[in-house]
Design a protein around this nucleic acid. Structure first.
Lengths: 196, 196
DNA sequence: CGAAAATTTGACATGACTCAACTGGAGTGG
DNA sequence: CCACTCCAGTTGAGTCATGTCAAATTTTCG
């Protein structure tokens, strides 16, 4: 079994945690897969582009972020192996993205082009169901963030970040974690010291 | 044409802004409608209950909110005529809600039960598409809030609230707006004075 | 090794919260 | 119709959480 077969297996295994793919579904899905490699700091999406694929991380680490009026970075999503990464807004609405989606390490992605994927939805309802679930959990995750940002102070948010992203924390620079939490790097540094 | 026919027309007209319902779709949809009236301060959903309907506001004003560990209220959604109101998390995941969904005025709702609605999805794709769009825009709206809460200070959030919810601002008490913005009522009062 | 990037540190500024007191209007019951 | 109560909104003093800026230190990586 060559490498790309292994990577496809990783995706299939991942999807099978939520729905059950039969052989037909597996084959159909495999047939639309595109691999993509990104070097460290390379961009998958930049503002003005449109997201036309779903992206599954086989190996590596990525984030999505945007710049506010003051050119401050705000990280919206982080992901490592077996996570999905995208600007879901752009993918779903087919409008131009305002986000950067960037590799933080050398990263290998499996991409599923929307056009092919939507054809599959018709004949393979498990795949349609899987992505419906993904979108629902994306909604839940974002709402959770709104709730946390209103209920918790910065240190509580940092602690719950460490729980949710346990395996990610060591792999990304601290200033990116700060930009995810919505605090300055200086303040996160201060908090870490205070509670250590 | 009696009142309830008028109300159904309002819903149909609303849906037709996004998708095109033929006569068959309209009839099918009409057949699953349930009306529900709520008095001022009455609850549609309380924590521990599960949301099993989509709820369209025909007349009135509603909000959803939750209580944090300190029993502080945080308003997540506000709605008036021709808006949808729900705990979408509970509706989609079929899990128990942690939210209150409450009428702020005497309110008339059209409810679409999930069980009937999902049956319709099979034969009437326009209806399925409509709700897929609604869920997408709910996702976008929540993400927009995350972005605003990270980029903007309280007064900027208040201004953008007034734009988005222009017709709602006058109908809801100020402390609820404060709990939507994520500030104390005292601080919102201070901001309003400062900028007047 | 040397330069650039990330992190830490500290002084100071400010946005937002807390608490308590006060004001004013909207019911409500007599 | 008045008196009373209650709740929303306002005000102000003091405090705390977090931001800003600049400099020092450490880490990363070519």
């Amino acid at each position: 079994m060559d490498n790309s077969q292994q990577h496809i297996q990783l995706l299939i295994k991942h999807i099978n945690q939520d729905v059950t793919l039969d052989e037909y579904a597996t084959d159909k899905l495999s047939s639309i897969i595109v691999f993509k490699e990104l070097g460290k700091k390379e961009y998958l999406i930049k503002p003005g582009e449109t997201a036309n694929t779903m992206n599954f991380i086989v190996q590596g680490c990525m984030r999505s972020y945007y710049l506010d009026e003051n050119a401050q970075e705000h990280t919206l999503q982080l992901g490592i192996e077996e996570w999905w990464i995208n600007d879901l807004y752009s993918y779903l609405s087919r409008k131009k993205s305002r986000m950067y989606v960037q590799a933080l390490e050398k990263t290998l992605l499996i991409q599923l082009p929307r056009i092919e994927l939507e054809k599959l939805y018709i004949g393979v309802p498990e795949i349609s169901n899987f992505f419906r679930l993904k979108i629902q959990s994306a909604y839940v995750a974002v709402q959770e963030r709104v709730i946390d940002s209103m209920s918790d102070d910065a240190y509580q948010r940092y602690e719950s970040f460490r729980k949710t992203y346990r395996d990610i924390e060591q792999r990304v620079p601290q200033y990116i974690i700060a930009s995810y939490l919505g605090v300055t790097p200086e303040f996160l540094s201060y908090l870490r010291k205070k509670h250590s």
